[in-house]
Design a binder for these strands. Structure first.
Ligand SMILES: [Mn+2]
Ligand SMILES: [Mn+2]
Ligand SMILES: [Mn+2]
Ligand SMILES: [Mn+2]
Lengths: 220, 220
DNA sequence: ACTATTTTTTAGACTAACTTAAAAATATAT
DNA sequence: ATATATTTTTAAGTTAGTCTAAAAAATAGT
């Protein structure tokens, strides 16, 4: 059965919401994620349900079926592989690639994904530190924590971001807090919940609460 | 103004027909190229005309405006660059790439095209020997002729194909008549218009009329 | 338990892109 | 020149995806 560009985006939205909230995706949550009206969502829900891509009970929210989830994770796989391609091969910066990958993820060719994966040397994470699911939809798991939850003295390396906005990514570039950078929490200021950290074992920097809440660090 | 995926394909079809026939594209020619009904074409012609992408007089056929032609050549540019990528970098064979490039040509990102072009070292021809237009829509010209029109004794190298079908491309692979192969016309048989040629200065081969009509050779 | 608020669905309507069937215009052939 | 054939357009209708406004159901607050 053919799945349209739009249907694919709805499946991806439902996957994202379910993952974030840990419960069925509500009509409003989907409409907000998709920037469409709630009525349009109800409409699409019927279509996806007819195609057995989602489980749906009215007023109860939706969850993906096995097949729906497989399509969603495959889209995420393609999205993230293309982001790796754009950054590693075409030298885009990490704040420029998402929009293009949003288009590229819809290219339909099983063989293309496999060849691309191989060409990129089977990457496990994308340029933002997000895991790239394998062909079966399994995501690599990594023990990571928000800088927010660190105690003074603890060390680690930057491995990902919660916020994917251009402004945040450019801010991190400016602070030389790219993926792989070693950091150590020196001091926590209760007053504004900011933190003083040591970047790359040589430069001290105070980071705001907002920044600390959006930076994933792998402890060492 | 936004141009849809479908509108892009119509512009490309009109460009192709005008180029082939050297005259305005008729409704029927477009419907045949697009695999849609003539009525659908008339419908779309109105939309494209409203957007000033084509010149249109009813019952007279259509031609592209400057802007319409610019969009069409830019699509061809992207299509052929992606084909080079697929063959050169992802090691697809030349008979597998067209379908995927049909999708990739619609990815919208000026910067992506530029980076891709650079990454591929600014190729001037695609894997089928077709010229890749530059950013201004100018095609490289190469003096080439169909093998059909050669005289016994003349030599040259294979530089392109007229027929892009999978079966023809696979036939050429089998005959080791890939792009760049030196050939010499040894003998012409009037009976069935077939030709005996020397491939790569070592192997003799008889080619049918149909093959000779679809193979572009650059004389030397 | 009832009322008020929020969420979701239904109803009705629009656009892009498509179809078939019929009508109109153009081209061709004697 | 007129009849015939071909091409193109018009008319009417379908589907996917969208919208706004109104109705219905579920949730929350006292
Ligand atoms: Mn992304
Ligand atoms: Mn990413
Ligand atoms: Mn092609
Ligand atoms: Mn080609």
């Amino acid at each position: 059965m053919e799945i349209s560009y739009t249907e694919e985006n709805y499946l991806k939205a439902i996957f994202k919401i379910s993952e974030q909230d840990g419960k069925p995706a509500s009509t409003n949550a989907i409409s907000s994620e998709m920037n469409t009206s709630a009525a349009s969502v109800t409409d699409m829900i019927k279509r996806l349900s007819d195609k057995t891509l989602i489980h749906y009970e009215r007023y109860r929210g939706v969850t993906l079926t096995k097949r729906g989830e497989q399509i969603a994770t495959h889209l995420i796989r393609k999205h993230r592989l293309w982001e790796v391609f754009l950054v590693d091969k075409l030298h885009f910066s990490w704040d420029e690639v998402h929009e293009i990958a949003e288009q590229l993820e819809h290219i339909k060719s099983q063989r293309l994904v496999e060849r691309l994966d191989e060409y990129l040397a089977f990457p496990k994470f994308d340029p933002h530190g997000d895991p790239i699911p394998d062909a079966d939809g399994n995501f690599a798991i990594r023990k990571q924590a928000l800088l927010m939850d660190f105690q003074p003295g603890e060390q680690g390396i930057v491995v990902g971001v919660q916020d994917h906005s251009t402004t945040f990514l450019q801010y991190l570039d400016r602070m030389e807090l790219v993926l792989g950078t070693p950091v150590e929490l020196l001091e926590y200021f209760e007053y504004d919940e900011s933190m003083r950290i040591l970047i790359n074992q040589k430069r001290e920097q105070v980071l705001s609460k907002k920044v600390c809440q959006n930076l994933f660090i792998q402890k060492r």
